[in-house]
């Protein structure tokens, strides 16, 4: 049974179909990569899955439940987390607080609890903080816990986005170009990180342009072009798919892909 199943997904912006009848299936436990040229509709697909937009046509079910008309915060609670292509951290807040906020939907303190600070509230707070530190440790940002998020260098901001998404305790993680702007060493660390996430049982849907990363890490690759799905299969198959090479990679990049 697929963890997430999108059927016939179509999204039209002012007459232009950013996505056109796309089907997507994500199996529990896999790393699925979504590739395609700029403007192909990858981020739009993320936005549909996470409830930022509601699709013009089509349906999306997650854990066998229809989520098409749910709000983003409900979808997060159900177990889907995401990062943003153009980083959207809470800039003025500390790195630690960013990850603490990530646990919002798994905690329950309300106004009166906050004012009274009952022992239940205190223990929840401690648990949240410990968990946040654990996650920061996991992504290698524990030493920056007290810094303002906006003051982190770019690569670390990307990792913080990932940490914050992880903090929502998701089953499915959507990562939108997590390696963008990273140097090769940072990218390698990221690959290790995603591998470990996958080992922890997280299902991952990944948008990425770095072919080395994609080919190395994905169990399956799905290719979008002009809003249409043009291929879907294991990396070896995608690598040699003429349609993909023609549409997405162009003549010059063909060698690059073959090389890796």
């Amino acid at each position: 049974m697929a963890l997430l199943e999108g059927k016939n997904l179509t999204m039209i912006f002012g007459g232009l179909a950013a996505l056109d009848s796309v089907d997507i299936n994500i199996e529990k436990g896999e790393v699925l990569s979504l590739i395609g040229p700029n403007g192909a509709g990858k981020t739009t697909l993320f936005n549909l899955i996470t409830g930022v937009y509601s699709p013009t046509k089509g349906s999306i079910s997650f854990k066998q439940k229809e989520i098409k008309n749910l709000k983003p915060y409900d979808i997060t609670r159900m177990g889907i987390a995401r990062t943003f292509q153009n980083i959207r951290l809470f800039g003025e807040m500390s790195v630690l607080d960013n990850v603490i906020i990530g646990q919002h939907c798994r905690t329950r303190t309300g106004v009166f609890g906050a004012i009274l600070r009952t022992s239940a509230v205190k223990s929840e707070e401690k648990k949240v903080r410990d968990r946040a530190m654990e996650i920061l440790n996991f992504v290698g940002l524990d030493r920056e816990a007290e810094e303002k998020a906006k003051n982190l260098p770019y690569g670390k901001q990307r990792r913080l986005e990932l940490a914050r998404a992880l903090a929502t305790d998701p089953d499915l993680m959507l990562l939108d170009e997590p390696a963008a702007g990273m140097n090769p060493q940072e990218t390698n660390e990221l690959i290790g990180l995603i591998d470990r996430l996958n080992d922890m049982g997280k299902t991952v849907l990944l948008i990425e342009h770095d072919m080395k990363l994609v080919m190395g890490i994905s169990q399956r690759i799905m290719v979008l072009d002009y809003g249409k799905k043009i291929a879907d299969g294991p990396p070896e198959k995608i690598r040699n798919d003429e349609k993909v090479i023609r549409a997405y990679l162009g003549e010059r990049s063909r060698k690059e892909v073959r090389a890796c």
């Binding site: 915060y73 997060t76 959207r88 919002h104 939907c105």
Partner: peptide, 8 residues
């Protein structure tokens, strides 16, 4: 928007 994505 990010706040919503965090479940708020």
């Amino acid at each position: 928007l990010a706040a919503e994505a965090m479940g708020i």
